[in-house]
Simulated assay, not measured.
Amino acid sequence: MTRFAIVIPARFASTRYPGKPLAMLRGGQGRARSLIERSWRAAMGVSAPGLVGVWVATDDARIAEAARGFGAKVVMTSPSCRNGTERCAEALAHLPPVDVVVNLQGDAPLTPAGLIPDLVRALAARPDVAMATAAFRASAGAYAHLAGDAAAGRVGGTTAVCAQDGRALYFSKRLLPFVPDGDGAPHRAVRLHLGLYAYRPKALRWYAAQPVSSLEALEGLEQLRFLEGDAPVIVQSHDAPEWDCIELNNPEDVPAIEAILAQRSMD
C-alpha cells in the first residue's frame, strides 16, 4: 500500500490576486467559504487506503489562523519558498513517513477528489518518473474561458502538451497546441492542466535544491523545472467532467466558480 499525504500550499502575496486564499466564494446554499477552505474540503473528500492526512502549508499567519479555524492541520513554512512545490518540499520534515506527497494547489476547489488516488497509483506504477500530474481534455466551456482570458490580456489557466505515452513535453500559460482557424471544435486538442501533483520525496528534495529554470521563470510554471532538469513527468489525462474545473487565477474568475458551486449544490 502506498502511503501518501496531501499538502495544500497557500501564500498570501499572490502577484495576480493578493490575499487569494482568503477570497470568499459563495456556494449553492448561499454560504460563503474561503478559497483555502473549499480546497481543503475537496482534499478531505478523498477516500483511499494509504492516505495519512491533509495539511495546509503556508508562511502567512492569517492563512494559518483561518485554516485552523475550520479544522485543518497546518505546517508553517518559510517565506523564501518560491512556489508550491518548494513549499511541499519544506513541509516534508513535518509529515509522517510517506511514499508520495500530493500537492493540491489552493486555487483549485473544483478538482474532483477521485483524481488524487488515481494519480498516486500512476506514480507508484512508474518508478522511472519523478512526478505525476493531471489534465483534462478541455470542454468547450473551459476552452472558451481560457480563450476569453487570453483575448482580454489576462493570464489564466495552463495547458499541457504530452507524448502518446503520457510523458509531459511542455506546459504553458498559452493555449497549446495551436489549432488552425476553421477547426469546428478546437477544444478537443487541448489538455487543461490541473493544479494537482504527486511526487516522490526524493524528487521533491532534488527539486528544492535546483535553481529556478529559465522556462519556469518565463512561464511562471513550477513544473517546468522538472522538465528542464531532465526529470521525467507523466500526465494522467481524463475526459472533461460534467463541470468546468476553473481555477481561481484572477478576481474575474469568482463569478464563474460560484456558478459551478451553485450548479453542483456545493455548500
Rank of each mutant, 00 (worst) to 15 (best):
A198W: 00
V54K: 12
G28A: 04
A13I: 12
I246N: 04
F12G: 14
P96S: 04
A89G: 01
G157H: 11
G84A: 03
R87W: 13
E219K: 03
R191L: 14
A259Q: 08
L224I: 07
E216K: 11
D60P: 05
A259G: 01
E216N: 07
P180E: 03
R188T: 12
T85Y: 07
T159Q: 02
R33N: 03
R167Y: 08
G153A: 08
A240M: 05
S34F: 12
M44W: 15
A189P: 08
S237V: 14
S172G: 02
A142F: 15
R264C: 13
V101I: 07
R121F: 06
G50K: 09
A42H: 06
A240G: 01
P127N: 06
P201C: 01
T111H: 13
A66P: 11
V100L: 03
A32Y: 13
I6T: 07
D181R: 14
G69K: 11
M76F: 06
A140M: 13
A48Y: 05
W55C: 00
D244A: 12
P49F: 13
Y207V: 01
R82T: 13
V102H: 01
R38I: 01
G229K: 12
V52Y: 02
P79K: 06
G106T: 05
P127H: 09
A67Q: 01
S14L: 15
Q236R: 12
I116F: 04
Q236S: 10
D244Q: 14
V102C: 00
P18K: 01
P177C: 01
V161L: 11
L175I: 10
